[in-house]
């Protein structure tokens, strides 16, 4: 399968690979997918007092498109408010990376990872507005 140059770039030079302390109150962790499906994505965000995402890190087990999608998302969420981050849609990711139809679910996973990370952060802050449907369920429909 031929990959777009952008996928290859993110894949070869993944941005923001790493881990944050998931017990830190300022860190939201979203882990979606399942090893059996061939993809697990973990996105972590560090949110400052003003509610802005200061930093993001990821680790992904999955195909090149899944790795590229999560790498891209770490770049995109940085500097955004939580609400802004929640507006990132898989279609944006797929478009940016020029993903073929069979790879759309990899971008769905990245969108789900953002939602899961934001929700985890919000829950840590006292379980305020819970807006997302179950993340695992949407990851599951992708396969």
């Amino acid at each position: 399968m031929a990959y777009s140059e952008k996928v290859i770039d993110h894949y070869e030079n993944p941005r923001n690979v790493g881990a944050m302390d998931k017990d830190d109150r300022g860190v939201g962790t979203g882990m979606v997918g399942a090893p059996a499906c061939g993809d697990v994505m973990r996105l972590q965000i560090k949110v400052n007092e003003q509610g802005i995402i200061e930093d993001a890190k990821f680790k992904t087990y999955g195909c090149g498109s899944a790795i590229a999608s999560s790498s891209l998302v770490t770049e995109w969420v940085k500097g955004k408010t939580l609400d802004e981050a929640m507006t990132i849609k898989n279609s944006h990711i797929a478009e940016e990376l020029e993903l073929p139809p069979v790879k759309i679910h990899c971008s769905v996973l990245a969108e789900d990872a953002i939602k899961a990370a934001v929700e985890d952060y919000r829950q840590k802050q006292g379980g305020a507005q819970v807006v997302v449907q179950p993340v695992m369920a949407s990851a599951q429909t992708a396969h």
Binding site: G38, Y61, C63
Partner: peptide, 10 residues
């Protein structure tokens, strides 16, 4: 183990 085949092939 712990790496996905397609990404490895890539």
């Amino acid at each position: 183990a712990f790496v996905e085949g397609e990404s490895l092939i890539m």
